[in-house]
Nucleic acid binder design. Sequence first.
DNA 1: TTAATCCCAACTGAATTACTTGGTTTTCTT
DNA 2: AAGAAAACCAAGTAATTCAGTTGGGATTAA
Lengths: 147, 147
Amino acid sequence: MKLSTKGRYGLKAMFQLALHYGEGPIPLKNVADEQNISENYLEQLVAVLKKNGLLESVRGAQGGYLLAKSPDEITVGNILRVLEGDMAPADCVLDNEMFKCEKAEYCVTKLVWTRIRDSIDDVVDSITLQDMVDEHNTIMANKKLEV
Amino acid sequence: MKLSTKGRYGLKAMFQLALHYGEGPIPLKNVADEQNISENYLEQLVAVLKKNGLLESVRGAQGGYLLAKSPDEITVGNILRVLEGDMAPADCVLDNEMFKCEKAEYCVTKLVWTRIRDSIDDVVDSITLQDMVDEHNTIMANKKLEV
DNA sequence: TTAATCCCAACTGAATTACTTGGTTTTCTT
DNA sequence: AAGAAAACCAAGTAATTCAGTTGGGATTAA
């Protein structure tokens, strides 16, 4: 039940770009350094995020990546689903209903998987990048007061 | 974010044993047949469940497995944690705090993983095998009425 | 005694993970 | 025009996990 580095690094990267939203394109190298991720590996992840309309890129010198939408329009769920697939603990409760089990109508374990999936969906769909930025700012402000 | 067959088969097997709770030992072959699982593979899973005090076994002919506690004392969380480990989406929010990240105090993504983990915990710790049996019986009773 | 059953250890093919390597192309700056 | 900064792309890879299989043994009821 663990996320792979795709989802974890991907969210970190998107959060980093959200922190700098409005400042123009940010080079991937900066993001990779800041979050301690291999730049070449991160490249593959942002390619997916871009293909799915969450990122835009600017090529050439002074180029980089930017969020395709404002941070309050991008949820954690948007990001994780693109990089990890549906947040479903079993194939029989995938959102797109690809997989069909003939016992589905009276399968009690399916009810369990459904409840797990729904609770995860609730959380990831309710948190936007803006929420994360706000939380970050609150934490940082409190840290300053402590000193 | 998917469960492996360990967790999925394991819960199905435990549910099957819960259905027959009080009837003495149930041979693994029955469980495997009923739930369409390789018996030899299931053997490995029940070994883990037994080692962790969720199952008891009776050897020899007419032997089999039985729940070590009554179905209302065994939660889905008990079963999944034994077979899959903590239901944490990232190592930094493992229940046992093995893994330590030095940025933990101001890591916003950690807050996200924590909320996901907590919501999963809420669900799996709130459902007992008895709940599943009850649900199963309700579904079956309704099915009968439909005909 | 024999058949049913649990118990145990090792092996395996396929897939996935988390990268790395080694480029090419585009564009800004000088 | 040259050089450098960046995005873009394709392939390879070592390690691990997954989902079993194989081939036995030990225990016990009938």
